[in-house]
Computed example of a mutant assay.
Amino acid sequence: MTTKNAKIILFIATALSFTGCDAVVDPLLFERQTIETGSFRGIQIGSSKMDVLRQVKTLGAYAVKPIPRTYFEITAGSIKEIDKLRQAEGIRITDHRGLAIDLKFDSGSVKLIRRSVPAKDNSWFFENQIIDDVITEIRKRFNEHPSLVVFPIVFYEGDGWVNVTGSLDEPIKTLRPYDAWTFGIASDKPGGSHFDLYFDGDRLTKINYRRERIRLD
């Protein structure tokens, strides 16, 4: 696709987005597929996590990162969905001013707290606080700070991308405890592709694939 045609498509997609036609816009910008049987680009549904990691490396990925198995985003307008955070290993509470508070849960209570610099003196949450009290506190803070956003995160050593270009012995130790991974293939034309992998136990059950249809350099 030429740059001129890509710009035309992007212009049309932008115009449509303002009319609320997201169902039309998305296919213009992205190719999306969900795979739950068979294989896709060498990644086999039903494979073990170790075998999937080998397949991902063969595909050409540089790094893999754990992601939440279930994603949600709670705002002041969707506070009724706040009980979803009970499904999460951890959550981040953030706003547009740089506040960020990460809570890790274990056995129904807070086990670890990380705070950004703007939140270093924040005292909304504390270790061993039960999830019911966390939910009550978040509800209260939404009333005072309606710009807050809450979404799930995972905690793991390194808290970044896991390099998979060399031996996979250490990467699989890091990734095995997690039931959802993500990675990208930058060389896929024109703008790269993204894979989200979902596991049930040790077996791959679903692949969500997204490829950008245009790229403007």
Score class of each variant (00 low, 15 high):
D102R: 07
I35V: 14
Q44N: 15
A13H: 05
G20F: 06
R32T: 08
Q44K: 13
E36V: 14
A63R: 13
R97I: 07
D95V: 10
D106Y: 14
P68V: 05
R69W: 06
F18A: 00
D83P: 07
V64Q: 08
F11R: 07
S39T: 07
T58A: 10
R54W: 01
P66H: 08
G90T: 13
S78N: 08
T34Y: 06
G38W: 03
E81D: 14
L85G: 10
I93N: 02
M50Q: 14
I35C: 08
G98L: 01
T34C: 12
T14C: 00
D83H: 05
D22I: 05
S78M: 05
A23V: 12
R86G: 02
K104V: 15
D106P: 13
G46W: 04
R86Q: 03
F40T: 02
L59T: 06
R97G: 08
T70S: 04
P68M: 04
I35G: 05
S78E: 06
T14K: 07
I9S: 03
D26Q: 13
Y71Q: 15
D95G: 10
I9A: 05
L29C: 02
K57N: 05
M50S: 13
T58V: 10
G98N: 02
L16D: 00
D51N: 11
T19D: 04
I101A: 09
A88C: 14
T37C: 15
T75W: 01
A63E: 14
D102H: 08
G60H: 08
A100Q: 15
A13F: 00
R41Y: 03
G38H: 07
Y62D: 12
G42P: 00
I35L: 08
K104N: 09
